[in-house]
Structure formats: structure tokens, C-alpha cells
């Protein structure tokens, strides 16, 4: 077959970046975490900062993120990644420091650390994966769970009257003077993934400017927690998550 001749290093247009290790990801099939990991790793690769990057892993599904990024990584206590990243950045101000956190980590137990790190304007990148649920522990309701959304601890759907409102923490940190670039993206479709990668790249580059915290939210799916196939969960996310968590830049630097 003639097309087999195309499989040649000269024709290569896309392969797994070497900033990701060869370890098989433990995530469920179709989980957005894997895509988000890869896009961030590609950004680190393209900027040529593999040796200068230090990541902080959270507690949650992505607790094992340090296995997958071939950069220096530090595990933080639940929710405390921005505080740990603050310390790392202050000791190594020339390094690129990022945290990678889910919504249970960043928007629930770590709310105080997140808000204060962003308010202090720590010069770090916060990557926030929002799938509206506690994935690792079995799909319990998170602060970001949508009104009416079913989870294992809200089996009849989240009742706002008794369970409160979902927390739009990204809009919240955008109001703080310490944040420099705040955006919300998704990685479920090719166009969205490319946009998310551009946003991550911009956010990583802004770290050189020393202007404040960059905050990138990635609205993601949880096929296992939502009890759907990956394709169904992506569709459900488009129909239900995006109206509540609209995609796009929330705070952009003034001169851009």
C-alpha cells in the first residue's frame, strides 16, 4: 500500500511529547485529565523549559500527576498546592512553577490557599480541572456541581435551596488584583484543545514577566462519575456545563 510510505520521520506531524513519561495513565477511558496533561507537557516542550519547570501535584484523581510529567514535581497536601507553589517560586524565582488541581482540591478544601495565592499575585500558573464532581472518591457532590446535577451524594440532583450554589471560582479569582491572566477552556474537541493549548502557552510565557498569577480553568468530563460513556459525557458537558461555565478569557492583560 502506497500510504504506508508516509510512516517516516520526515512526514511526522504529531507524536507524544517526551515531556510526558511512557507510563500508562491511570485515568478512566475518555477522561480529560490525560489530554490536559499532554497539552501542558507539549507547552513545556515547545517553550524548551523542561529543566526549568517545577510542578505541584494535588490530591484527587490527578494525585499521581508526578508520574506522568518528566519535570521536577512536588506533591502537596489536599488543596495546598498554591501554598506549596508559592514557597517553591520564592526560593527559585527564575523557575517556571505550576500547580495542577481538580475542583475538589482547588475549589473546596483549598479555597483559602487558592484565593490568597491569587490575591497575593504569586507568580505561578494554576491549572484548574473542573468536572463538577469528586472523581477519585466515587462521584460525590463538589462545590462546582451544577444545580440539579446528580452525584452519589445528591442522588436527586443538587438542590440549591439546601445544598447551596455552585462556586464559580474562576470568576471570583479574576476579580482579585493579583491575577494577571484568567481564562476558561476545554479539551474535549480538537478546536477547544488547540485553544486550551494556546492559553496554557500564553500563561506559561507570562510567568517570565513577573506580573501575577495566571489561572487556566479547563472544564472537563468525568465519564465514570457522571455514569456516561466518554462521548455522552462530552455532549452532556457541552449542553450543561458550558452554559454555566462559559468558555473564554475572563481577564486578559490590559496591553494585549
Amino acid at each position: 500500500m502506497a500510504e504506508n510510505n508516509l510512516v517516516h520521520p520526515d512526514n511526522l506531524v504529531y507524536e507524544k511529547t517526551s515531556v510526558m513519561t511512557d507510563r500508562v495513565l491511570h485515568y478512566c477511558p475518555g477522561c480529560g485529565h490525560g489530554t490536559a496533561h499532554r497539552l501542558l507537557a507539549e507547552v513545556i516542550d515547545e517553550l524548551g523549559i523542561q529543566g526549568e519547570t517545577i510542578g505541584v501535584a494535588p490530591v484527587g484523581c490527578s494525585v499521581l500527576a508526578y508520574y506522568y510529567f518528566d519535570v521536577d514535581m512536588q506533591e502537596a497536601a489536599h488543596g495546598r498546592a498554591p501554598a506549596v507553589a508559592t514557597g517553591i517560586k520564592r526560593v527559585f524565582p527564575e523557575k517556571f512553577v505550576f500547580t495542577y488541581q481538580g475542583d475538589g482540591d482547588l475549589a473546596a478544601i483549598g479555597t483559602a490557599e487558592t484565593i490568597h495565592a491569587c490575591n497575593r499575585g504569586e507568580n505561578i500558573l494554576v491549572v484548574f480541572i473542573n468536572n463538577g464532581i469528586y472523581g477519585m472518591t466515587g462521584g460525590q457532590m463538589a462545590p462546582t456541581t451544577l444545580p440539579g446535577m446528580k452525584s452519589s451524594t445528591s442522588p436527586r440532583g443538587r438542590d440549591v435551596a439546601t445544598m447551596g450554589n455552585p462556586l464559580k471560582i474562576t470568576e471570583l479569582v479574576a476579580e482579585l488584583p493579583g491575577t494577571y491572566f484568567v481564562t476558561r477552556q476545554s479539551v474535549h474537541a480538537p478546536a477547544n484543545a488547540r485553544k486550551a493549548k494556546r492559553a496554557l502557552k500564553k500563561a506559561m510565557e507570562y510567568q517570565k514577566l513577573n506580573k501575577g498569577t495566571c489561572f487556566v480553568e479547563i472544564v472537563s468530563n468525568c465519564p465514570s462519575g457522571w455514569k456516561m460513556t466518554p462521548a455522552q459525557s462530552n455532549k452532556w458537558m457541552e449542553e450543561n456545563m458550558f452554559p454555566y461555565y462559559p468558555l473564554g478569557d475572563i481577564k486578559v492583560p490590559e496591553n494585549q
Binding site: V7, N11, H33, R38
Partner: peptide
């Protein structure tokens, strides 16, 4: 056509894409 759409959304990075010059 080697557009790499499949590879960029693959959560497990299993796809390598080639495209003719």
C-alpha cells in the same frame, strides 16, 4: 489527511500522525 485532530484529543497520547509533504 493527517490533520491530527484525533491525536490532539487523545487522552492517552496513543496516536502518532504522519502527513505527506
Amino acid at each position: 489527511t493527517g490533520c491530527a485532530n484525533c491525536a490532539i484529543v487523545c487522552p492517552d497520547a496513543v496516536i502518532t500522525v504522519y502527513r505527506e509533504k
